[in-house]
Amino acid sequence: METAIQIILNSIVSGLLLSLVAIGFTYIFRTTRVFHLAHGGIYVTGAFACWWTLTKTNNWFIAIAFAIAVVAILIYLIEKTVYLPLNKKQSNQSISLIASMGLYVVIVNILALIFGNENKTIENSISGSYEIGNIILTKVQMIQTVIGIVATATFLIYLKLSKSNLALQAISDSETISKVFGINTNNERLKVFIAGSILSCIAAILKTLEVGIDPQAGMSITLTAAVVAILVSRMNVLLVIAFSIALTILQNSVEWFLDAQWKDGITFLLLLLVILFRTEGIISYNLRKDRA
């Protein structure tokens, strides 16, 4: 029983971090229709920027601010030079997927060239844990949980205050009609790319606290976030969080009862089944016939 509680507790924390990446991926995918695999590149760029600044300044505030600035500039350049021009040419999703794969390869190899392929850990990282019976919660997990919740809440408040949520839903339904109704679609695209990248950057920094970072670390979490995006199939932050935690519980259970290497296999088997038999995602609702 205690093992089950520990697995669930760990899964909630890891699931929250996954949900930060998945929220960004889902909003970007649903709004821009870009299957943004380069999100994995953005993730590791944020982590490396933070790690590098910490080694130079030993100041967390400067490190986090610098990492966020770096990912924001990087995604701005990517959107302006690659994704937006492809969107103007009305390229289909396969084209943007290929471009995204190319960008991912470039980013990861540049980082490997600069920092090397080995895992980088943050020195003087926070240690210690709290124990309730046999259940353990580390201080790093506490920090991950609190900052994860704050970041998600900030994103939700931003959506509410900026009224972007409605604009994003409109662009998701039809970009052309959104333009007719005066929505600056290019601006909204850029905002969702930057917001999604910042969430991913925060997740990467929190994960680096726990296990460190290497240039290849972004692909696995991005692919899992992509699975969440396909399963949820809607722009709903709370649903993305719920699915991220559920998927992490499944993965951790597989890791516990079978083997760590099976968890990706099981995750993607689930994706395959959903794509084949429920392409509209697990959570779907009946649209009126004239909207279906």
């Binding site: 396969s94 997927l97 396909i230 296999g265 995750t267 993607f268 088997l269 994706l271």
Partner: peptide, 24 residues
């Protein structure tokens, strides 16, 4: 059964399942 992006994603899933099977 599926076309375009969803075909690509289904093949991506098969690729990862294949690697998992080879590994385990």
């Amino acid at each position: 059964k599926v076309r375009e992006l969803y075909f690509s994603l289904a093949t991506l899933a098969l690729q990862i399942i294949f690697f998992s099977v080879c590994y385990n």
